[in-house]
């Protein structure tokens, strides 16, 4: 009954306070993980150092970024490998 009345008078069924809550959650996920390019560059260099101990990588083609989906954030790295170092090969 009440819902029907609400529809007649044009009130939308989703409460705007809930909508604001959801939108805030999403936007803050982005805001909070929005780290500076400088720090991103540092992360990239650190990854290069670690990986280079085990394999040769193509540093120029390497990509590191933060990616969001609806409720989580992931650090995604794409690191093209040129060759695996001798001592680390499986025999």
């Amino acid at each position: 009954m009440l819902e029907a009345l609400k529809k007649i008078f044009g009130g939308s069924s989703a409460k705007s306070s809930d909508l604001a809550h959801q939108r805030l959650k999403f936007v803050l996920l982005n805001d909070r993980t929005n780290i500076s390019p400088e720090i991103m560059e540092n992360i990239k260099n650190d990854i290069i150092q670690v990986i280079s101990k085990y394999m040769e990588i193509n540093q120029n083609a390497m990509e590191v970024s933060l990616e969001n989906d609806s409720d989580s954030v992931a650090l995604v790295a794409s690191i093209p490998v040129s060759s695996v170092k001798q001592k680390n090969r499986r025999r």
């Binding site: 409460k15 705007s16 306070s17 809930d18 604001a20 809550h21 805030l24 959650k25 803050l28």
Partner: peptide, 15 residues
């Protein structure tokens, strides 16, 4: 807040 047109304390705490 009661009508659901303003953020309530629970939501603000959560965020």
């Amino acid at each position: 807040v009661k009508d659901g047109t303003m953020l309530d304390m629970t939501s603000i705490d959560d965020i």
